[in-house]
Nucleic acid binder design. Structure first.
Lengths: 205, 205
DNA sequence: GGTCAACCGGACGCCATGTCCATTTATTCG
DNA sequence: CGAATAAATGGACATGGCGTCCGGTTGACC
């Protein structure tokens, strides 16, 4: 804790509005690195702003200057991963991206990608985005728009506005973590979601 | 606040292990009545133990004696409603209860009943049962067992252990409240859930 | 009416949050 | 190169909820 962390130069989201003082940049990197580590190590919801400040080797005030709460830090950490997935959804190859794939298959592919996201990088970090606030996120809006679009395209006559949120619900971090905790593997969870996708969106014979 | 509330004699869950002193019983009734009111009035998550104690006209210590946290109070308030629904599931008429109805229709009926539950009595109270803790509830275990059973009976070859939780996810209080907040009515939400139920469990032609 | 146990309730310590401001430090300009 | 200036820093502070503890009170039973 005392002195020397290499700080692996996380590139992370770098806003750099006009110009950023060198010390500010250095401290932001420290905060993100420290938060990432803390979120992974223990119960994300139990990490306090104080913990992060201490682990980053900076003061409370400095931390609050840039990040008003834990959620904003988690968002900063997630940002690039979510962007990457959004990019693949919009411009990547089918069935994840647009293309000849049927809506049901595209939804299944989206589910698989989200499970990857939940599993590899963020499972712990997402834990910091708790409850209601999740739905206000820009990312959630994007996922909803995507799913809504797929429901509409499927042409099953179902209500897209209602179904979009309901189809996203199983991806809630709480739910995913609980299922993982019950001994279910990511592939099995993804398979369940695929069944759900095909059941709801695939045309009935 | 000072003195006189009729206290509408909520029957509520009355454990009465051996015998309960009159003052204790009176205070429990006051606590439940006060909590019910507070949960309905404002943001449930913002209600503090202190608020409840003050509103009930008792001291902190007294409140903590019986209820270790907000969730336990919410559970006490929910208890009878959940029990009633569980009873109907196990012994009531089809399609909600057991009987000749197809699994998909039984799941749709269950969804409708849960929407009723969320809508009428508890929407606000459920708000107090936040996040992870929800899954540890006895009630949640019951819902899961029920849905798991329906998935198995449907015989679609899907994974019941995985699907049960995923099919329950759209009933999360957070999700329901968010949808209601977006202007969607209970019937519309229930219709969406019914579509989900039939898509996943109804036999394909 | 007396004894005893259960109940009551407010005071207390703890911890996290978010703010504020005196001081330090990077950057720019003469 | 060395001030001037504005930004960044960090720790102290006030606030508020949580959960506990214990001296006093009151209901229940004999």
């Amino acid at each position: 804790m005392a002195g020397v962390n290499p700080i692996p130069e996380l590139p992370m989201a770098a806003p750099a509005p006009a110009r950023e003082r060198a010390d500010a940049a250095r401290n932001r990197a420290r905060v993100l690195a420290a938060a990432d580590r803390l979120f992974r190590d223990g119960e994300p919801a139990a990490v306090t702003m104080d913990d992060i400040a201490k682990a980053a080797g900076i003061g409370r005030g400095t931390l609050y200057r840039r990040y008003p709460d834990r959620a904003s830090i988690a968002r900063a950490l997630l940002d690039e991963h979510e962007r990457a997935l959004q990019e693949r959804l919009m411009r990547g190859p089918a069935p994840l991206g647009p293309g000849p794939a049927a809506p049901a298959e595209r939804l299944a592919a989206f589910y698989a990608a989200m499970v990857d996201l939940l599993e590899s990088h963020v499972d712990l970090v997402l834990g910091a985005e708790t409850g209601q606030a999740r739905f206000a996120t820009g990312a959630y809006g994007f996922w909803r728009a995507h799913v809504r679009h797929l429901v509409t395209e499927a042409g099953t006559g179902a209500d897209p506005d209602v179904l979009a949120d309901q189809l996203l619900a199983p991806l809630a971090p709480d739910v995913y973590r609980m299922q993982r905790g019950r001994g279910l593997g990511p592939d099995r969870i993804a398979a369940g979601l695929a069944a759900l996708a095909r059941g709801v969106l695939a045309p009935r014979a």
